[in-house]
Amino acid sequence: MTSVRTPVIGGLQQAALPRRAVAGLAAAVVAVTALLFSVTDLQGTAGFVVVATLLHLAAQTVLSRVVEGPRRAADRLVTTAVVAAFLLALAPLVSVLLYTLQNGLERFDWDFFYRSLRSIGARDAGGGANHAIVGTLQQVGLATLMSVPLGLLVAVYVVEYGRGRLAATIRFFVDVMTGIPSIVAGLFVLSFWILGLGFGYSGFAAALALTVLMLPVIVRSAEEMLKLVPNDLREASLALGVPRWKTVVRIVLPTALPGIVTGVMLAVARVMGETAPVLLTAFGAASIVRTPFDGPQSSLPLFIYQEAASPQQTAIDRAWTAALTLILVIMVLNLLARLITRRSKIGR
């Protein structure tokens, strides 16, 4: 090379929009949007946010293209769009949480957790959801007790032992089960267990319906987690002369445990909010039913459904608090599960 080019802009260093310019642009866009909303027919908060976001995207792209070039402009466009989409996805989540908190705190008191709706009339204040909380915990607990061992066994069979047609058939039916609408699971237990075999409404019947719903979720997630365990580990264990079943129990399952627990928690969280199948199988009750084998029982979703349908503000307040309780229970269970799996791993 004979002529040495002095690197101007376009060498390694590139022109970049300063942060302040982007912030200024955002402010300008908000101002313009406000102006638009005051002189035209446009109105509403959601509309404001949408218009401002789109304007900002457009203005920023143009500005960046002029100053920084097309590659950086595209980069900024996509980055901003991704952030906007993230915030959009977060908005309903956060607002549900805040709204529930705001409304649920009204009745978040001792009575609510200590008392049931026994001898609480349609217009009465007070009363609580103790019977519903007990019901939910018992029904979901029983369903977990039934579906986790069964689901794990199925997943272990399919991944570790299943070869050929039987495993493929099982996998197919598990997929089909995943798609069963929850009310159909309730109807199934209603017609088979309650009407067919004549056992009557009970928390246990609800647990059966929830088991039908949980099983495929647990099987699928456990299956995926078991497949993630490297084959090297199975071979290492087998090569030590460890029998296959022991390899599965002592090496494969512990390695996949955190993922399996997460899958179980997702399944638990999912069925904890189920209303329709519980309505069809546990039916609901106003007073505390201590065991799930003792006739109709309530549950939190059922409680919410029944109370929220009332025109009375006191009942609606109870429904909100029950909703808040449900969210809290699921959160606590999630945290516990995380703690347990973290504990089971060895510290460094």
Binding site: P230, D232, L233, E235, A236, S237, A239, L240, G241, V242, K246, T247, R250, I251, P254, T255, L257, S344, K345, I346
Partner: peptide
């Protein structure tokens, strides 16, 4: 007849001690 593989494959959930003891314990 024991075996050592091409890629090192210690059991990830186990400590150094447990890895070495694994064959004995599991048997």
């Amino acid at each position: 007849i024991g075996m050592v593989f091409q890629r090192p494959n210690p059991f990830p959930t186990m400590s150094i001690y447990d890895n070495v003891a694994a064959g004995l314990r599991l048997n």
